[in-house]
Computed example of a mutant assay.
Amino acid sequence: MTAETIDRLLMALIAATLMASVVIAVVNPSYFHMVFAAEDRLVENGTALFLLFASLVLARNALSLRRRGLSLAMLLTGFYALLFFFASGEEISWGQRIFGWQSGDFFAENNYQGETNLHNLMVGDLRLARAVFGGPLTIVILLYLVIFPLLYPRVPLIRAVADHLAAPVPGMRHAVFAVLGSVIIGLLDVPRKWEVYELIFAIMATSTFLLPQNPDKTR
């Protein structure tokens, strides 16, 4: 199966996820937050899975860049691969609920959910997820998905730096879905709707790393 075919399937999956979310949220809001987007259910496990897929795509790209002798680009891409692997593990608390092991004393006392992950740690009365992984990270991701693909073909300096660092540049399809997904999810009035938002961005990341605007520079 070609990268183009996989990418089309990923785009179709994003569209289907958005449509399903709207229908479920309107028809059965309780099912939405108690089953569809609940802990350890379809949406959360899907997010972890696609973050892992994104990590594997980046790892493959890093190996390809290494064979081309592009050391800096290889190191950066490898680092991004580790970040996405970490995010995948964090999403499911590193398999804690799957395998049934208990949190250590530190996480039991300082984690919002008493689980072994960093994004739910409490710093005083502040949740780390909201301070770092919430609004600020969302803004950075939206700038990457919406603004970056517009600037890349128009600003030579940005294009040169991105290509030198082998930074995958999202396509316009990613920008459109990022805006559309933000509007649709933002308008839903159900708990845990942002879990779907995370799933959409995980799928979009996989698509971006697999087939960016500059595939000849990233792998």
Rank of each mutant, 00 (worst) to 15 (best):
G171D: 15
A108R: 14
L72Q: 11
L76V: 11
M122W: 11
R192T: 09
L165T: 12
L118S: 01
L128W: 04
V190N: 10
M172K: 14
V132Q: 00
M122I: 04
G181R: 00
Y144P: 07
H164I: 02
V179N: 06
L137V: 06
L165C: 14
R159M: 08
I158G: 08
W194M: 15
F201W: 15
L126K: 12
L187Y: 09
V169R: 02
Y112D: 12
W194D: 15
I184G: 02
I147M: 08
L199Q: 10
N110L: 05
D189P: 12
L210N: 11
S207V: 12
G186P: 00
V183A: 13
A162H: 10
A131H: 05
D163L: 03
K193W: 06
V190P: 13
L180H: 01
F106P: 09
L180T: 13
N117M: 03
L150S: 07
R127N: 04
S103V: 11
G134S: 06
V123Q: 06
A175V: 06
V161N: 03
A178E: 13
R173P: 05
T208D: 05
V169A: 12
N110E: 04
E195P: 12
G95Y: 05
A162Q: 09
L126Y: 15
L72M: 14
L128Y: 04
P149Y: 07
G171S: 14
Q96P: 12
T116D: 05
L157P: 00
A81E: 01
I185H: 01
L145T: 08
L188R: 10
P168Q: 08
G89Y: 03
L142S: 00
A129Y: 02
L157T: 01
W94I: 05
E198H: 10
R127G: 04
S182I: 07
G89C: 11
T116A: 05
F201I: 14
Q102V: 08
V190S: 10
F106L: 09
S88H: 07
L83Y: 09
V140R: 02
D105F: 06
S207G: 15
G78P: 09
L145N: 01
T138E: 03
I185V: 15
Y80V: 11
A73C: 10
P212Q: 08
I203G: 03
N110Y: 05
V196I: 14
L121Q: 02
P149F: 03
D163Y: 02
R173H: 15
L82P: 05
Y197Q: 03
I147E: 02
A160L: 09
G100F: 10
L199D: 03
R173A: 15
P170K: 03
L188W: 11
Q102W: 01
N111P: 01
F85E: 07
G104F: 00
I200A: 08
P168D: 03
A81L: 06
I200S: 05
V123I: 14
N117H: 02
D105E: 14
E109L: 08
P215L: 00
F177W: 11
V179G: 04
V161T: 09
G135V: 12
F106Y: 11
E90D: 11
F201N: 14
T77S: 08
G134L: 01
